[in-house]
C-alpha cells in the first residue's frame, strides 16, 4: 500500500506539481533529520517523565508507576515537537 501511494505521489509531484526530481534526495535527508529530532525529543520526554515520577515518589512518599510514561501519544507529541522545531529552525535560516 505504502509503495503504491508513494509511486502515485512521485508521479503527482513530478508531473502534476512540476517538482524537481533531484530535490527528492534532499527531502529524504530532511525527513531523516526530523525523525532524528523526534527521537531526541522522545528520549528527553521519557527522561523528564521518569525523573518527575521518581521525584514525586520521593517527595510524597506515595507509589507512582513509571508505566505512566509508557504511552503511544508521547511518540506522536515528540514528532509534533520535532516538526515545529524543524520549521522554526528552517525559517530562521
Amino acid at each position: 500500500m505504502v509503495v503504491l501511494t508513494s509511486i502515485a505521489a512521485y508521479f503527482l509531484g513530478t508531473r502534476g506539481l512540476k517538482l524537481e526530481r533531484h530535490k527528492l534526495g534532499r527531502a529524504g535527508t530532511e525527513a531523516l533529520e526530523i525523525l532524528g529530532l523526534s527521537m531526541v525529543f522522545l528520549v528527553a520526554n521519557l527522561t523528564a517523565g521518569v525523573c518527575l515520577i521518581l521525584g514525586a515518589r520521593a517527595l510524597s512518599g506515595r507509589f507512582l508507576s513509571a508505566y505512566w510514561v509508557n504511552d503511544s501519544t508521547l511518540g506522536l507529541m515528540s514528532f509534533l515537537q520535532a516538526i515545529v522545531f524543524h520549521c522554526w529552525r528552517r525559517g530562521a535560516k
Partner: peptide, 13 residues
C-alpha cells in the same frame, strides 16, 4: 545535522 540524520536512520531501521 549529520548526527540527527544518523539518529533518524537508526530510528527508521
Amino acid at each position: 545535522m549529520r548526527a540527527l540524520r544518523a539518529i533518524g536512520l537508526l530510528g527508521l531501521l
